[in-house]
Simulated scan of single mutants.
Amino acid sequence: MGSENAVSDKKRSYVYFPNLDGIRAIAALMVVVSHIEYHKNLFNLQRIGIPNLQNMGKVGVTIFFALSGFLITYLLMVEKGEFNRVGLKDFYIRRILRIWPLYFLIVIVGFFVYPRGASKEALWLSVFFMPNLAFCLQMLPSIFDPIWSIGTEEQFYIFHPHIFRIKKPENILYALVGITLALITINIIVRSIQNHNQFLSDLSLFLYYARFHNMMVGAIVAVLYYNTKHPSFKFKLQSAFELMFNKYVQIVIWICFILFVYLYTLSEIPQGDIVISVLAALIIVNLCETSSSIFSLNNSKLKYCGKISYGIYLLHKYPLYLMLYIAQTYLSSVGLFWQNLFIYVATLIAVIALASLSYYGFERYFLRFKSRFQKVSQNKQAVSS
């Protein structure tokens, strides 16, 4: 698009973390696997005897939120650092071009084509980016209810970039920490006093699905990480944060993450998503440092799935329901192994195929315009996702 861009290449900065596409891919596939097991009950199919699988989705979503908060914040810090300001108008246009086309396509299909029949209240809540409230009130049809998290992200974007109007980076950090602690405190208080009060129970559920605190955790880690690259202030735990890049500390973080995810998916742990978002954010920041990271997710297949992960996440239940229906109708007499082999392989192939069609046949058309509003791009050669 060259000379047509509102922001020329000479005025653009490039930031690219090759491992983060792999994180997107893993998080999206965790959601798919979780929903395969979770929705087997709808089709009277036997679940695999691993209780953790059906709860992996909430871990995948938490990783998505931490990653979103981290990456958006880091890019905003780079833009502010190199251009002395954050272009709010351009920020919102970029988010619209990335999120709205597929989101509204699913809203149109879900409410008017298949499955149809949802309430007008759910439709209007979805149109005005409150599907998380519709989800909490059990108004959304299950087949496209992943849109709830898009509402959460859009609500987060309303206020988050305005924090970067603050001049000093250390004050940005303090604001993020203060807001995060306030959100966590409100969550804990409401959850602890909700006893048999319907309004407080509904509020507690909505606050859980708001998940702003998960994104804010990623945002805090992003500011700390940016400060290690572009030192502008010192904070008391700076040396402790820089220890995160030590390989032995990384091993401890990974072990803690795996153990906690195992326990969290086995039984509900109050506010466990906060712990997962913290550990996920620390893993994300280590994966950004490819030279010191003990793992690499810079794999071509993972990168591809990461690129189309938005479509994987939003669209996966349509092919999933189809494969579960086929298994119920035509494979009820085969063994559990062969039935599940078909469900998992066919679902993953169909989900990736549909997400690919969505990305290359629909989403990419809008993403081509995104670079016109980017001072900080994530990729020099490809359309940013």
Rank of each mutant, 00 (worst) to 15 (best):
M1D: 11
G2S: 05
S3A: 12
S8V: 13
Y16L: 14
F17C: 12
G22W: 09
A25Q: 11
H39F: 13
Q46D: 11
G49R: 14
Q54N: 11
G57V: 15
K58M: 14
V61T: 08
V61Y: 03
S68C: 04
G69S: 02
I72W: 03
T73V: 05
Y74M: 11
M77L: 12
M77V: 10
K80E: 06
G81C: 10
F83P: 07
N84Q: 13
K89T: 12
F91P: 00
Y92H: 03
I93A: 01
R95G: 01
R98G: 06
L105Q: 08
L105I: 10
I108Y: 09
A118F: 04
A118R: 07
S119H: 02
S119V: 10
E121A: 10
A122E: 01
F129L: 13
P131D: 05
N132A: 09
S142K: 15
I143M: 09
W148T: 10
S149D: 08
T152W: 02
E154K: 03
Q155A: 04
Q155H: 08
F156Q: 01
H160E: 00
I163Q: 01
R165I: 10
K167N: 04
K168M: 06
P169H: 01
Y174R: 05
A182E: 02
I184P: 00
T185N: 02
V190F: 03
L200Q: 06
L200G: 02
S201F: 12
D202T: 14
S204D: 04
F206V: 15
N214S: 07
N214M: 09
A219T: 04
A219F: 00
L224V: 09
K234N: 13
K236T: 13
E242Q: 11
V249P: 03
W254P: 06
F257I: 15
F257V: 15
F260P: 00
L263N: 11
Y264E: 06
S267K: 15
A280C: 09
N286R: 10
C288R: 14
T290I: 12
S291Y: 09
F295M: 14
L297W: 06
N299P: 01
S300V: 14
I308K: 03
S309V: 14
Y313N: 05
P319S: 03
M323T: 12
A327C: 00
S332E: 04
G335P: 01
L336T: 14
F337W: 06
F337T: 13
N340A: 07
L341G: 10
V345F: 04
A346W: 03
A350V: 08
A353G: 11
A353T: 15
L357C: 13
S358I: 14
F366G: 03
F366S: 01
Q374E: 12
N379T: 10
Q381N: 15
S384P: 05
